[in-house]
């Protein structure tokens, strides 16, 4: 029990750049997602095969969820939100394979994802509302709240990062402790719980990203 949960495992160096375990897992997940999409949609047909049908079901479910959260004009956000969700599901569930550690259990991956959401909020806010209107929305309801609005912008990004990292990492940590205390069979319910936690955290991260971007874009009830 001397494993430091904040330590990053460096697998090898690519020139001067150290490549961590999480980076390799992330790239494998990205390659798998691209490969499955490419295989399924290579010969997209009106009368689809099994894989294309499955992909269509996934995309339609995500689109309808995004539409529920973000309201009108949500179609343009589906690629970003959908990719975020699919990547998070794969990343959180990758820990079920023996020897693989979820990349989201290291703080860098959640930090990068939260940064993507943080930047998209401003990008879509400025693009859909214009500079003046977007900056002005920080001074509502009154200009006195300007510092608080800016602070909340930063803290919510930070809390998104810590939420995902903390949940995935603490689950790993609990598993390590249970496996350390009691042999083989006892950790199995915790492993099952881990699948649930991974799915729920992926869902929460995605929903929060959708809510934040939707609020910045100004076309939802979450103003």
């Amino acid at each position: 029990m001397h494993a430091n949960p904040l330590h990053t495992e460096i697998l090898f160096h690519l020139g001067p750049v150290p490549i961590a375990e999480a980076v390799v897992t992330t790239w494998v997940i990205m390659a798998l997602l691209v490969a499955v999409s490419w295989l399924g949609l290579r010969k997209a047909a009106i009368d689809p095969g099994p894989l294309q049908t499955a992909l269509e079901v996934v995309i339609e479910t995500i689109s309808s969820q995004v539409a529920d959260i973000m309201g009108k004009g949500s179609v343009q956000f589906v690629p970003l939100i959908g990719t975020l969700f699919l990547f998070l599901v794969c990343a959180n569930l990758s820990a079920v394979f023996p020897g693989v550690r979820a990349p989201t259990a290291h703080i860098e991956t959640p930090a990068a994802l939260a940064a993507i959401v943080f930047l998209s909020v401003h990008y879509y806010g400025v693009r859909l509302r214009g500079w003046a209107a977007y900056v002005a929305h920080y001074t509502r309801p009154t200009p006195i709240l300007l510092p608080l609005n800016i602070l909340s912008e930063i803290t919510r990004t930070f809390s998104m990062m810590i939420r995902l990292f903390g949940n995935m990492m603490s689950h790993e940590f609990v598993l390590a402790i249970v496996a350390f205390l009691a042999g083989l069979i006892v950790p199995i319910p915790f492993l099952a719980l881990g699948i649930l936690v991974g799915l729920i955290q992926a869902y929460i991260f995605t929903v929060l990203a959708a809510v934040y971007i939707g609020a910045a874009a100004g076309n939802t009830a979450f103003e």
Binding site: L6, R163, I200, Q201, I204
Partner: peptide
């Protein structure tokens, strides 16, 4: 479930602080 995960986050924050104290 979503609400529980949100509530649980508060406890997770404390855990993160504890781990920071212990390891970093």
């Amino acid at each position: 479930f979503v609400g529980l995960a949100m509530i649980e986050t508060m406890a997770i924050y404390c855990l993160v602080v504890a781990l920071l104290l212990l390891y970093a």
